[in-house]
């Protein structure tokens, strides 16, 4: 907040082309992004983000669970998984363009591909760490093998899965912008590079603020969902901490 005020007053009389006054930037946020033409860019980007992220989450948990349950498959695929995981996803933009063009599919595939790894690896790791006593208990209680995955393994691993989903969200937001940078005709990323190339620095700065707001809102939504889903985990941990 203080930083924001400093920025406001420091930039108030700025005549610099590169650092326009904050008042102008905020006005542009309103004019362009809230009521103006850039709203369409925002909608496009958010649609890519949402679809890509949901796919990443579902595939990450699903494939993670599959690899956990099939030891041979896990051992056979782990070098490839690692290779794909360490590959910086932005370098895949040209490949994705070649394969999928520059449209909706390419962006969603790129976001999903980059964002899947934290969730997938955390799911695998979380599931491997489930307490044997909890699994034995489930067998004794008569829970079927599929039921054991759904009722015991998934909830027991959920704190780690959620941590993975949180990292995936960050990666997805980055890839949302990057995928629109060089290979797009719309979206926030396209707007940024377009503004920069046409010397519209007010527009460029205003996109940054919009991106920050998207990040904050996405994070708030995530934390709200997390607190709801994992309230038992935080409750139990607080009790543990008190008894120590």
């Amino acid at each position: 907040m203080v930083l924001f005020l400093v920025w406001w007053f420091w930039s108030a009389g700025s005549k610099s082309l590169y650092f326009p006054p904050l008042s102008q930037i905020l006005k542009s946020v309103w004019d362009q992004w809230v009521i103006g033409p850039a709203r369409a860019q925002l909608a496009t980007s958010l649609e890519h983000l949402l679809v890509g992220y949901v796919i990443a989450g579902l595939v990450g948990i699903g494939v993670g669970a599959l690899l956990w349950s099939l030891r041979y498959l896990r051992d056979a695929t782990s070098p490839y998984l690692y290779f794909l995981y360490v590959l910086p996803a932005p370098v895949l933009v040209p490949a994705a363009m070649t394969l999928f063009g520059i449209g909706f599919t390419m962006k969603v595939v790129l976001i999903a591909f980059a964002a899947v790894w934290p969730t997938l690896l955390n799911t695998l790791d979380g599931m491997s760490g489930v307490d044997q006593v909890k699994l034995d208990t489930a067998r004794v209680l008569g829970v079927s093998p599929a039921g054991r995955v759904l009722r015991v393994v998934l909830p027991a691993a959920s704190p780690q899965i959620v941590a993975g989903l949180r990292n995936s969200l960050q990666v997805a937001i980055i890839l949302m912008v990057v995928s629109e940078w060089q290979a797009a005709s719309d979206g926030i990323g396209y707007y940024i590079s377009n503004a920069q190339q046409s010397f519209d620095y007010v527009g460029m700065w205003s996109s940054f603020i919009v991106l920050a707001i998207i990040g904050i809102i996405a994070n708030l939504l995530f934390v709200a969902a997390e607190n709801r889903a994992l309230h038992w985990h935080y409750g139990a941990r607080a009790v543990e901490g008190r008894n120590r």
Binding site: D131, K134, T137, W232, H233, A236
Partner: peptide, 8 residues
């Protein structure tokens, strides 16, 4: 019991 009950 801490390991056999399901905390969720």
């Amino acid at each position: 019991y801490g390991r056999s009950l399901y905390p969720w």
